[in-house]
């Protein structure tokens, strides 16, 4: 059996990759994908930890997180499309109309 720590390490790595992606990428869709990666890393943690502590709460939480991630995808892409209509770009560096 694969030990739980392996899953937790993988999940921490995925989460870190997600953070790095959000920080260094400028394309709104890629940034958004990185956020989804972070959510899925958390899901993996939840499932692995659920195994570790021996109750099912963590696995139930995953269902909720999946619903949230799906809703976020819908809302996020809609917002990106609405910006694309006016700015003709999905680069976050082109979202520069609001600067004090």
């Amino acid at each position: 059996m694969v030990p739980v720590t392996y899953y937790l390490t993988l999940s921490a790595l995925m989460f870190t990759l997600g953070i790095v992606g959000v920080v260094i990428r400028r394309n709104a869709i890629v940034v958004f994908m990185c956020i989804e990666l972070m959510l899925n890393a958390v899901n993996l943690s939840f499932v692995a930890l659920s195994r570790l502590v021996g109750n099912l709460d963590g696995q139930i939480a995953v269902f909720f997180v999946m619903v949230v991630a799906a809703a976020e995808a819908a809302v996020g892409l809609a917002i990106i499309i609405s910006l694309f209509r006016s700015a003709k770009s999905v680069e976050t560096s082109d979202a520069n109309q609001l600067n004090g």
């Binding site: 997600g18 958004f32 956020i35 972070m38 943690s45 209509r85 109309q97 609001l98």
Partner: peptide, 27 residues
């Protein structure tokens, strides 16, 4: 639209970080 995009990207980023904290706490 721009304010929505900024709020969305940063907001869901911070929510994801918070969720990781919740997962660890559960562990």
């Amino acid at each position: 639209s721009e304010s929505a995009l900024k709020y969305f990207l940063l907001g869901s980023f911070s929510s994801a970080i918070m969720l990781y904290g919740i997962a660890l706490l559960y562990g």
